[in-house]
């Protein structure tokens, strides 16, 4: 790959002599990304190791902010947030994969496919809060579901745990993050040449075997992307847990908001650093999980023809 050199590249080359040639052609982007994203992140992590109040910071290194975080019930918070996010991501994968498979390969009717796309995208025209609040009137004590249950005699009293509970939070996440899981998998699967499926069939594999040996490995990039795009934003979600859970189910990012609300920036920074740590751990997990099939590189390299 020939790299076109510009004046910018020359400067970069002088400063960082040992990076491979391909980087030079991305120099502009890299600088912006580094300056705009990486440096602030590092700043946050750095800050969390100091003391202070509000925005006054004393430069004495300490773990105090982290101690505070954990003393505010932080470990529960962490455990709960990760547990819920992991559970939902798993469930989404189980639901979204067959759905994406059907949409990409099974659905012959273009009209149906078009309508499905629309149904998946339209909710995003509403604000996240608006999408979620609607469920309150459905799951509430006097809501539609309860009315139906009472009318059919399934229960004697309205069911209270449908809303402001973990059930509600799970439900809210499930709906909100379904498209983020479906889209990458759908794209990945639609890129699978039908020839491969036919060849697999022709060679003696029934549908299930074709799914396992051909479709799934080739859809793996989409699956990985889907998992990443679902799990990580879910950790950062502030809307669903609050509105569906009524503050009964506290999640990480809501906590950051409330800390910032009282100018407790340092503990918020510590919390942010912890979240970053979780995301890193998650990436490591992903990397390790993909090792048996050749690692992350391989998974995407399979798209090479």
């Amino acid at each position: 790959m020939a790299a076109t050199l510009t004046a910018n590249d020359d400067v970069m080359r002088r400063l960082l002599p040992r990076l491979p040639a391909g980087v030079w052609s991305l120099s502009g982007f890299t600088v912006v990304w580094f300056g705009g994203i990486v440096i602030p992140l590092l700043a946050i992590i750095l800050v969390s190791f100091f003391q202070g109040r509000g925005i006054r910071i004393n430069l004495d290194p300490t773990f105090l902010q982290y101690e505070r975080f954990f003393s505010y019930g932080g470990s529960d918070l962490l455990a709960r947030s990760v547990r819920i996010a992991a559970t939902i991501t798993f469930i989404e994968l189980m639901i979204a994969f067959p759905f994406a498979l059907w949409l990409a390969k099974g659905c012959k009717n273009n009209m149906v496919r078009l309508l499905t796309f629309t149904a998946l995208t339209v909710p995003f025209f509403l604000s996240p809060a608006a999408r979620v609040i609607v469920w309150r009137s459905v799951f509430g004590i006097n809501g539609v579901v309860n009315q139906a249950l009472l009318a059919t005699g399934a229960v004697d009293e309205p069911v209270t745990w449908l809303i402001f509970s973990e059930f509600a939070v799970h439900f809210g996440f499930l709906g909100a993050f379904f498209p983020t899981m479906v889209w990458p998998i759908f794209l990945s699967i639609s890129l699978i040449d039908n020839d491969f499926l036919e060849a697999s069939n022709d060679l003696g594999a029934n549908r299930f075997r074709t799914l396992v040996h051909v479709i799934f490995p080739l859809a793996l990039p989409g699956v990985v992307a889907g998992i990443v795009f679902t799990f990580i934003p879910m950790l950062g979600d502030t809307v669903v847990a609050q509105h569906m859970g009524g503050n009964n189910v506290l999640m990480l990012s809501a906590q950051v908001q409330s800390l910032i609300g009282v100018s407790n920036f340092l503990v918020a920074a510590a919390l942010a650093a912890v979240v970053l740590g979780i995301m890193l751990a998650f990436q490591v997990l992903l990397w390790a999980a993909l090792k048996p099939v050749g690692g992350l590189n391989e998974v995407f390299a399979n798209l090479r023809r």
Partner: peptide, 19 residues
């Protein structure tokens, strides 16, 4: 179905599994 017939196909574009 194709998977159980005793014949195999060599496809025009080979259809070799890339992975």
């Amino acid at each position: 179905p194709a998977s159980r017939r005793n014949c195999t196909t060599v496809f025009q574009h080979y259809a070799l599994f890339p992975h």
